[in-house]
Amino acid sequence: MVFDPTVAVYALIAFMFLGSIIAIEARDLLSTVISVSAVGAALSVIALLVGAPDISITQVVVEVLCLIVLIRVVVTRQDETVDAHPSDAATAMGLAFAAFLVVVCAVGFVGLRPFGQPLLADAKVGAGTMGAQYLEQSFASTGSPNAVMGVLLDFRAYDTLGEATVIFAAVIGTYVLLRKVGRKNA
């Protein structure tokens, strides 16, 4: 009997909603950080359940790193949360934007395939698409048994280069912003 992950996935999604709401409403910054991490942990379990171990590993590992860094930042800083209410205009604007987002999502998600039935699982529609070609040829033409790596670093290595550039630029920016002294006299 094949394990059907759908129920577990929906339960985890509900858990993620709960965690997000707690993260927004919590008074304490530390509780917010921990709630966000719980959401990330649930996301990694979902990735594992739907059969994406690569994403799951990356998610867990990055989540742990972010948790450590955020807790370090939060613990050493005082909570400077201002208990101010936004003005009426800002609230109206926010609500209008949220409604707009909901409408766009509702219209856009109609065109998606139903959950649990990816394009490649459909023999008629999926055959001949680029994804199917990747899956067929990745083992033979890249020699990589892990098809994800075959796509990531062979067929789509250019995208990976862009991703590496983004991280590089982000960390260089961190160095520049956080260095101890401006080097005016150096």
């Binding site: 690569d54 590993i57 990356t58 990055v62 742990v64």
Partner: peptide, 18 residues
């Protein structure tokens, strides 16, 4: 073992940093 099992350069690098 990124090309043999799940993982790869990014998660492995993050584990080393951790």
């Amino acid at each position: 073992h990124g090309h043999l099992s799940p993982g790869g350069g990014f998660p492995g690098g993050v584990i080393l940093a951790c």
